[in-house]
Simulated scan of single mutants.
Amino acid sequence: MAKATFARVLLVVALSMSISIWPACSLNLLSLDYYEKSCPMALSIIKSGMEAAVAREVRNAALVLRLHFHDCFVQGCDGSVLLDDTPTFTGEKTASPNINSLRGFEIIDDIKEQLEKVCPGAVSCADILTVAARDAVILNGGPYWHVPLGRKDSRTASLVEANTNIPTPNSTLAVLIRKFLFQGLTPIDLVALSGAHTIGQARCTNFRDRIYGSDAKDTRFSLLKASCPLSGGDNNISPLDFVSPTVVDNAYYKNLVNERGLLISDQELTRFGSVTSALVKHYADDPLAFWNQFSDSMVSMGNIVNPLTFLTGEVRKNCRRVN
C-alpha cells in the first residue's frame, strides 16, 4: 500500500510539471569546471570561508542556506538579494520576507574579498552564494553535491518579486505548490527543500500563529509562549527543528509526522490526502532518501537562471553594489 501511494505521488508530480511557468533550467550555460582556468582556487576559498563562519557561529550555515533560497526565487540565482539600497536603487533586503530576517551578508562579503585578492573579477557573487550554501549543508553534517557554475550577477533587483515569489511562514499548501511550480520546481522539490528547516531558527513573529493556533497540540508550543507572547517578543527565536537543530538530518520530517512543525507552512506539508503528505512520511522513514532528493533539489534550485543575466549581467567586485 505504501509503495502504491508513493507511486501515485510521483505520477501527480510528473503531471504537475506541465503547468510550470518558469522551468528551472540552466540552459547549458553552467558547467562544473567553469573556474578551472580563471580561478582554480575558487571552491577551496569558498569552503574555507564557510568553515571559518560556522566555527564562529554554527547558525551561520542556516543563514547562508536561507540567503541562497531567497536569491533564487527572485530573478533566478543572480545575487540580487545581496544588493544594498542606494538613493537611486531599490534592492530586495526590505521586502517583507527579508527585512529583519535575512542575515549572513557579511559572510559572503568576506569570501568575496578573499577571492578578489586571488582572482580579481573572476568569481560571481551568485556562484559564491550557491557554493557556500552547499558547503554550509556539509558543515552541518549534510550531503555533498556537485554545483554547476558560471552564473552572472544581476545589475537589477526586484522588491516586487521578492514580496510576491518567496513563500511566507503562514503559506497554505496550495500557495507553496504554486510558488514552487512558478520556479519550475515540483512538489517533490518543495518537500525536500523544506527540509532545510532541519537547521536554523525562526522568529517569534513567524511562528506565533502556529503556537497559538487551535491545532497546536504539542506541549512544546505551550512552553514557547513564554518567549513568544501574543504581543511583543517578535524577534525572539526558536529552533525550527528542536530535536537536532544544528544537524542536517530527517528529524524535521519526524517532527511533521508528529504534528510538531514550528511554522504553519511546515505543517501544511502533511495536509491529509495531499501530494506532499506521503513524501513527508517517506523522508521521515528513510533519511538517505531525504539526503539524495535534497541534493538533487538543491541543484535544481541553483540552476534557476534568467538567460538575460548572461547577456546583461556582470561579475561584481563588491557583492553589495553593481560595478
Rank of each mutant, 00 (worst) to 15 (best):
V147C: 11
E36N: 06
M50K: 00
N255W: 02
F310M: 06
S274F: 08
F105E: 08
L223Y: 07
V160P: 04
V247R: 11
V191C: 03
I19K: 13
L149N: 02
R8S: 12
H68P: 06
T312Y: 11
V118S: 10
D218L: 02
S214P: 06
K3I: 08
G141T: 07
S222P: 00
A162R: 00
L29D: 00
A132W: 01
V118Y: 06
L30W: 05
D153A: 02
R210Q: 09
F290P: 06
N292L: 15
I107S: 01
R321V: 14
T94I: 10
A53P: 07
V123G: 06
V147M: 12
D71C: 04
S101K: 12
Q183G: 12
S44K: 11
R66I: 00
L11T: 03
T246F: 10
P307E: 11
H197A: 08
V191F: 04
C77E: 02
V118P: 05
M301H: 02
C125L: 10
V315A: 03
A7I: 09
K47W: 03
L115E: 00
G213Y: 03
D189M: 03
G313L: 02
A133E: 13
R8K: 13
L173R: 04
L181R: 12
A7H: 09
L29E: 03
I177W: 05
N323A: 03
F272Y: 12
L149D: 01
M17R: 14
T276K: 05
